[in-house]
Design a protein around this nucleic acid. Sequence first.
DNA 1: CTGTTAGCGCGTTCAG
DNA 2: CTGAACGCGCTAACAG
Lengths: 341, 341
Amino acid sequence: MVTIKDIAKATGVSPSTVSRVIADNPRISSDTKKKVRKAMKELGYHPNIHARNLVAQSTKAIGVILPSSADKALQNPFFPEILRGIGSVTHKEQYTMMLSSGQTEDEIFAEVERMVYGRYVDGMILLYSRMDDRITNFLRENEFPFVIVGKPYEYMNEITHVDNDNFSAGKEITEYLIAQGHQRIAFIGGARDLFVTIDREKGYETALQEAGLEDVKDYHIHTEFLKSAGREAVESLLALKQRPTAIVISDDLISLGVLGMLEDSGIRVPEDISLVSFNNVYLSEITRPALTTIDIQIYELGAQSAKALIEKTVDKSEPVKRIIIPHKVIYRDSVSSYKRP
Amino acid sequence: MVTIKDIAKATGVSPSTVSRVIADNPRISSDTKKKVRKAMKELGYHPNIHARNLVAQSTKAIGVILPSSADKALQNPFFPEILRGIGSVTHKEQYTMMLSSGQTEDEIFAEVERMVYGRYVDGMILLYSRMDDRITNFLRENEFPFVIVGKPYEYMNEITHVDNDNFSAGKEITEYLIAQGHQRIAFIGGARDLFVTIDREKGYETALQEAGLEDVKDYHIHTEFLKSAGREAVESLLALKQRPTAIVISDDLISLGVLGMLEDSGIRVPEDISLVSFNNVYLSEITRPALTTIDIQIYELGAQSAKALIEKTVDKSEPVKRIIIPHKVIYRDSVSSYKRP
DNA sequence: CTGTTAGCGCGTTCAG
DNA sequence: CTGAACGCGCTAACAG
């Protein structure tokens, strides 16, 4: 391993001079700078970060916390995509990205503790937002910089977060369905304690209400990614005497499952029933029919959260922010206008 | 920040004693151990890894290199799942996982250089295997510990890698199709320079050959995840006077695309054409029909590669290994036996 | 069984 | 413009 001393010796200057050259300190003659840089190249010098971090009391690294992978949710293409977004800015800023690897909530919590106390990272991004979250509380109590992708369950004004306007998104897409003539519209969502679900559902309810449509209780379904359990729920939905003519689904991946069940039941989309959903992951354009869905700009969600976090870690006085990433309806083929039978 | 010194002062012992307690050194009286541990608890001591790494000349961290995300391939649920596998063992071993974040090959290469030279990590896992790969060469030249998930393009016997027997898998699944009476079987694969594709395709070819079936050139299609370009290819396949009655597809995600196109063309699966594919990601059971596919145990692929890597980083003399993860055909509904029309 | 000393590689005073 | 000296927090070698 070639250190600062080695190249100091090789060039006949002192280690501190070399250090200054690395930092591009203006009060070093360009002559010696050149000389030193040359030696660095030749000897293959590379700074040792641990030494650097030790003195700098900062690591240019951020931790990314995934939801507990008990959640099958991890299989969602949402994650690679948001990681890509985060990566784009960590990379640009020469930051490093450390991933949580725990499976259960307890494991993850222990990991977060290590990361924070051990000074592994300068800050973290939470890729989920759940009610009453231990990790969020811990981070807050320790005044450790972090940002949440989604909506914090409390202290909204004290926690920087990056989110979509899920309420409006849910409202808009439902209104679109209503504009197409649908009056019996159901909602299928994921876990009930996730804010995305909650917000989108509220938007849906509000749209119904404003249009003077009845909000039927049986039309609300919550399920974890639609395995057998979800199947029954959907079947009961179809068994209703007043079957819905359209469904708002809170996630593209769930839509895929629903699409399958509908096909099993011999129900055609969009002829018999219309579907809309959220996220616009790659999948949504290769299903048949292709899904009308809301593009929430996952990549941007990631990029902006990383950007906000880094800003905060370099300047503690950076104010708390709430960043809303715009969404957009992507019209494809899963909706038809309702024609009275 | 509370350091070793603080707790030394608090307990009236020397810093080194504290250090020894942390390492659970046997020649420390259990009395002082207790005393020291108590103080650590009370003062909230946590070791600073950078200090530790600096002296240990090792970081308990591994780098995970994703393929360049120009590849849309990243959207594949394969990645979250393999990360989960890797995470399971890094977590158990108290290791840390650092993710590459570059988008282009050049960016990633620069990152790898930093990680290696800067001693960010003790070793890395490459989540792809491509012909003539710069990063592989670099790692080899620097004798830096790494393992490849997939097959190295050369120096097979000098690079530890974790792979499936993709050749056999391709052969088996094709033989299954043949056993169902199919004689005209096509192959659709991803990028041509990826070893997975190559191996699976060879298995397919061998099966045909052994069964005395003709290997039709027009039956081979290569495409990047089936956007417009892939569509044309598939359409040309269907336009052939001798249309295939079954298709072997090298990835579940591609299958999803093909399924869509087939439906567009009014071709029913499996009645008109049978489909089989690889990976058994979550998706493959929610499509309609559910896909008959080969389970390659993605999670295990990740876990084993992490395990092998960590073993190598702790004991440099650990021999090069080649670990083959078994696969298994998962029979679902995308295949029917061929009946002469 | 425990304390003292030195040093990991680097950045940062403080002198000059 | 540059060098010497110190310290970041921790471990290891050597004493005792």
